[in-house]
């Protein structure tokens, strides 16, 4: 299998869709001549023309709203919102409309809309460009929320997103576009709601998604040197969530830590902790912990930003304490 970047993996899925489904079109700010803020659609305008690849004005609300309209009318739009931060300008369309039109029409209307956006911090982009708001969207019934961690995930999950009959919030991580991994050249689809055991282990489960999977994995490597065998779970989608997969892992290891860039208070980690105690309480040897970002707007300075983000050393320390029976 060739080693390609996360960016290239996304491109392969999009190109496949454009080539194989006449109903698919892409729109968003700077996706045409510019090729997208993260160069995901580079060259597509030349290849597929303006009918399929459309630059929009800086109007996120109408980008999503018109995407909903076109989807209701039978097309398969993919809208790109640059970053999850700017999706906030379209949140009424996403939360009040895309997610509910099917339900409110008694199942008569469908909104098969793919909304791509970049999230995550760690790139010195400041408080308004570094959000991890996936938990907000995962909170909303009617939205599927996808958080790929690897190039393999990126292609397989994006392929599945286009098969969906529901709105999909597809959240890429700004720091992962250049990361590389093995990806089959052929078409494949990864199911939503199926977590991946990223690294098998027996002593503690480190649960991550998107960028935090890699942090968890590096922490697991360090823990190995300390004689601790950590299992790393890659959630792949937050909604649907692979509750069974999480519970199965925790039943095996009896300890768990959730790792996420997001703020701790009210974050998605809290949901996972609750599910574990609901479904695996009797198997736990220790409280389920969270290693999250600090509850602050993300500062720009590298020194401040790194202080506000979860660090591998912190994960290792929590895991060591958990395994030794010391809890904070």
């Amino acid at each position: 299998m060739p080693d390609i970047t996360y960016r290239e993996a996304l491109r392969q899925a999009l190109r496949y869709q454009l080539e194989h489904d006449e109903r698919v079109f892409l729109m968003g700010e700077d996706i045409g001549a510019y090729g997208g803020s993260y160069a995901v659609t580079k060259g597509f305008l030349e290849e597929f023309g303006e009918r399929r690849v459309k630059d929009t004005p800086i109007s996120e609300s109408v980008v999503v709203g018109a995407g909903i309209g076109a989807a209701m009318a039978g097309l398969k739009p993919m809208v790109e919102l640059m970053t999850i931060n700017f999706s906030l300008l379209a949140i009424d369309q996403i939360v009040n409309n895309a997610s509910k039109l099917h339900y409110m029409s008694n199942g008569q209307i469908r909104v098969p809309l793919v909304m791509r956006m970049a999230g995550g911090a760690g790139s010195q982009l400041g408080a308004q460009h570094s959000h991890s708001l996936e938990s907000w969207y995962a909170h909303v019934p009617g939205l599927k929320v996808v958080v790929p961690a690897t190039p393999y995930d990126a292609k397989g999950l994006l392929m599945t997103a286009f098969e969906e009959e529901n709105p999909v919030v597809f959240i890429e991580h700004t720091a992962l576009y250049a990361s590389k991994g093995e990806v089959p050249e052929d078409v494949y689809r990864l199911p939503f709601g199926a977590a991946e055991v990223f690294r098998a282990g027996t002593d503690v489960t480190l649960i991550g998604y998107s960028g935090s999977v890699h942090q968890a994995f590096r922490a697991a490597q360090q823990l190995e040197e300390e004689g601790i065998d950590a299992e790393v779970l890659n959630l792949r989608t937050l909604r649907p969530l692979d509750v069974e997969g999480i519970v199965a892992s925790v039943r095996k290891t009896s300890r768990a830590i959730v790792i996420e860039d997001d703020w701790k208070f009210g974050g998605f980690g809290g949901e996972i902790v609750a599910l574990i105690q609901e479904h695996a309480f009797d198997y736990l040897d220790a409280p389920v912990l969270r290693c999250s970002g600090s509850d602050v707007p993300m500062p720009y300075s590298m020194a401040l930003e790194q202080a506000a983000l979860p660090q591998e050393a912190g994960i290792v320390e929590l895991a060591l304490n958990l395994c030794e029976g010391v809890t904070p």
Partner: peptide
């Protein structure tokens, strides 16, 4: 340079904000 003495934000904001 996002220095502590940045009068706009103490290094919190992006440059030129």
């Amino acid at each position: 340079f996002a220095k502590a003495g940045d009068p706009a934000s103490g290094g919190r904001q992006m440059p030129c904000h």
